[in-house]
Computed example of a mutant assay.
Amino acid sequence: MSTRSRSLFVVALAALLGACSNAVPKSETPSDELPALILPADLVADAGQSRPVGASPDVTPDRGDDRVADNRPADPRPADNRPADPLRAGALVVAAPQPGSYALIIGIEKYRDVPAATGARGDAERFAEMARTTLGVPEENVRLLLDDRASKTDIAKQLRWLQSNVPAGGRIYVYFSGHGAPDPTSGASYIVPYDGDPQYLGESAMKMTEVLGDLEKTKAKDVLAIADSCFSGAGGRSVLAPGTRPLVRVEPVKTTARVVLLSASTGAEISGPSADGKGGLFSKYLIDAIGSGQADINGDGQISLKELEDWIKPRVKREAKRANRDQTPSVQVGKKLGAPADFIVSWGYAK
Results as ranks from 00 to 15, higher is better:
Y349A: 02
A268V: 02
G280P: 00
L13I: 06
F9Y: 08
T118E: 11
R249V: 10
G277T: 10
V53Y: 15
E269T: 00
M206R: 05
S263P: 02
P184S: 07
E251R: 08
D147S: 05
R6I: 15
S283Y: 02
R6A: 13
R67P: 00
K217N: 10
T266L: 14
G334F: 11
A69K: 14
A14G: 06
R82C: 05
A15T: 08
D46Y: 07
K152E: 05
K351I: 12
G338H: 03
R143I: 07
V53M: 15
R126S: 06
R63W: 11
L16C: 02
E307H: 05
D65Q: 08
L8A: 15
D310P: 01
A79W: 11
G213F: 06
L144Q: 01
P78S: 08
L8P: 00
L146Q: 01
L261E: 02
D42V: 12
W347Q: 09
L144Y: 06
D222S: 15
V239H: 04
D113T: 10
A205E: 02
A96Y: 08
G196D: 02
F176C: 04
T153P: 01
L286E: 04
T328L: 03
A45E: 11
G293Y: 07
I155M: 08
G54F: 14
D154R: 07
R51K: 11
S232T: 05
A14F: 13
A14T: 11
S56P: 00
G348E: 06
K26I: 13
R63G: 03
F176D: 01
Q98L: 11
S271Y: 05
Y285H: 13
A124W: 02
L337N: 03
F282N: 02
G170Y: 09
R77T: 04
V331C: 08
G170M: 09
Q49V: 13
A339H: 14
I344C: 04
A225M: 11
A14I: 15
P61Y: 12
N81Q: 15
C230G: 14
A103N: 00
G280S: 07
I191A: 02
S238L: 09
S238E: 05
Y102W: 15
G18N: 09
E269V: 05
G279H: 04
T153L: 13
E251F: 06
G196T: 02
A84N: 12
P40W: 14
P57A: 10
